[in-house]
Design a protein around this nucleic acid. Structure first.
Lengths: 224, 224
DNA sequence: ATTTGGTTATACTGATAAGTAGCATTTTTG
DNA sequence: CAAAAATGCTACTTATCAGTATAACCAAAT
């Protein structure tokens, strides 16, 4: 297990209530850290072997703990899968929202969106891939929650395309449909990119930007 | 089990050797038919629940047979998965090759390619989706064979883009890289399309054509 | 009608893995 | 330092399922 959360300020050791609060907080952080580490290792196995083919015994072994240890931090195997899928889509959604917060024309914003989301997807490939691959292994309830997040993503992306359409920057017949192609193109990166493969992460990100720009470009070119 | 193979011509019942050959042929057809039916039902389950979560007992029950019946037509569960994945990629590859055989400019050919492959992917969504999702469940040998087929697909597509680039019809910096985006866009259809959903198969196919055309279009527009 | 060859089912084994009950150990606290 | 609380492990249960050995069945041919 590598570095713990930083920025824990020294507590006043003469002040009993403060000391207690500080101790409780630290404990909480350690618990959160353990959960993260379990999730991280589980995502490696789910990514490499698939959800069903992964045993929690093997995850525990990798962490040098035992299976009941995992069960004291997660209710069951399905909860692990849900958290991994949730991470995969939530990271992308957050990246999208942050990019949309940057002021600029629709064209500029779209470029930033694709760049940031593509980067996040590459950096968190394991989580995103498991999310795309293992939907069928989620409970119906969990699957619905994940689909809702995805829907939010597609909707916000569609709003940006709509904005560009109104300003005349983009040529998109149906923004909500084009949004699905764009988000599909981004998802595809997770399924296809291979670290140390033929193309670098930067090349893939730049390519994605180019592709998306062309997909929304007016027929006469960007400056028509 | 619905209709058997047709076009079985009547054998001359007075000619012993011919009769025997006809009988042997029919037997072979029936065996092939049974294999197809098993594969078809298995693909339903693999698509709906995933490979690992599917039991051969449930597939057998759906066919009103028993598990040993399946084992008399397939060596093991993995062989079923391989044949399903193989079908998924081979159908796409065949559609690509047939489309490439049609004479025309690169632009015309690309349109036909996207149209036909997209249609095939929608019609055989179960096979294609399982192929995209379950790569990790294949034996290393089977996985390599499948990857080789995919590679052939991408290579032939890249050759078409290269042709269009040379003729000045397409603006693609690196045909082999663009081919991967295009084939990714096509694959995405399988993961995303839902029969009876918001958009019809025809709309999706037409959209795919538009998107791909834009992806390869020169900056100044199609008639620059 | 009986044998023969092929086809399908019954009934089993062996292995694997999710999830848990209860014990041991460490840490905290008064 | 002793009691209490939290933490983690050993050892187990239970269920499931891939794969198989063997028996029953059936159709054709004589």
């Amino acid at each position: 297990m590598h570095k713990l959360a930083e920025n824990v300020y020294a507590a006043d050791m003469t002040d009993k209530p403060k000391k207690k609060r500080a101790a409780a907080q630290l404990k909480g952080e350690i618990t959160a850290y353990k959960r993260r580490r379990i999730l991280e290792e589980a995502s490696h196995f789910f990514f490499a072997n698939g959800y069903e083919a992964t045993t929690l015994d093997s995850v525990a072994e990798q962490l040098n703990v035992t299976k009941p240890f995992i069960y004291s931090y997660y209710k069951n195997k399905g909860e692990l899968l849900y958290e991994i899928c949730q991470t995969g889509i939530q990271l992308s959604l957050t990246a999208l929202e942050e990019a949309l917060a940057v002021e600029g024309t629709a064209t500029e914003q779209l470029k930033i969106v694709v760049e940031r989301v593509a980067r996040i997807i590459i950096e968190n490939q394991r989580y995103v891939t498991v999310y795309l691959r293992e939907e069928k292994s989620l409970t119906p309830d969990d699957a619905r929650r994940i689909r809702d997040l995805r829907h939010t993503f597609d909707t916000k992306l569609a709003a940006l395309l709509e904005k560009g359409k109104r300003s005349g920057e983009f040529d998109v017949a149906a923004p909500s449909r084009t949004a699905i192609w764009v988000s599909g193109l981004l998802s595809w990166i997770a399924l296809w990119y291979h670290e140390g493969g033929r193309w670098s992460a930067t090349e893939v990100v730049m390519d994605a930007i180019t592709m998306v720009q062309k997909m929304v470009q007016p027929a006469g070119g960007p400056n028509a």
